[in-house]
């Protein structure tokens, strides 16, 4: 593959890397797995890049590949930390540092989202990224009605996690 294409791709990914990092931090619990998943998403994006014709924004195009990699293609490596242990430790430390109520609320919410299953996480992620239901349903391959129903159920799940 030619150098120019590579340069173009790496620059695009470099300036849009936050999207991929957000997906990685949602789906993994330690730095090692985070990098692992980031690498796999980058490889998949690069392999698919020749088919990217600029019909949509680069960032929009990334969502599908990143989420598909996280929920379908990626296999966790063996060296993983047990989810719950790691999470609780992390959140305790951060909660102690920020006693601001709103900040704490955000952390708790994020912690609750991390406890959801892979598919629910994908829906919440797209929702937080301000995607409409048409785009959510198109990315995941479910009907729009279904996406709405699922999103409502997820909100209920989150409520239960936050107020057990």
């Amino acid at each position: 593959m030619n150098k120019e294409l590579e340069h173009q791709f790496v620059s695009e990914l470099e300036s849009n890397q936050n999207i991929v990092h957000k997906v990685c931090s949602l789906y993994t619990n330690d730095a090692h797995s985070h990098n692992d998943l980031f690498q796999e998403i980058s490889i998949q994006l690069w392999k698919a890049y020749p088919k990217f014709r600029g019909e949509s924004k680069f960032s929009t195009w990334m969502y599908r590949v990143a989420l598909n990699t996280a929920i379908t293609l990626y296999r966790k490596s063996k060296k993983r930390v047990r989810t719950q242990e790691y999470d609780s430790v992390l959140f305790k430390i951060k909660a102690d540092q920020y006693d601001d109520t709103q900040e704490q609320q955000l952390k708790l919410m994020y912690g609750a989202i991390k406890q959801l299953n892979d598919i629910d996480k994908a829906l919440v992620f797209l929702y937080l990224e301000n995607k409409d239901y048409a785009e959510i349903s198109g990315t995941l391959g479910i009907s729009e009605v279904n996406a709405r129903v699922k999103m409502n159920r997820i909100k209920n799940k989150l409520r239960t996690i936050l107020n057990p």
């Binding site: 620059s11 490889i43 937080l128």
Partner: peptide, 27 residues
């Protein structure tokens, strides 16, 4: 979510360039 400066890592151009030539471990 979008405006917030989250605690996200930042990779350099060089990091990313090396990454994309690694072998995939996908299912």
């Amino acid at each position: 979510w979008q405006q917030e400066k989250q605690d996200l890592p930042k990779l350099s151009y060089k990091d990313i360039q090396q990454m994309i030539w690694k072998k995939s471990t996908s299912v």
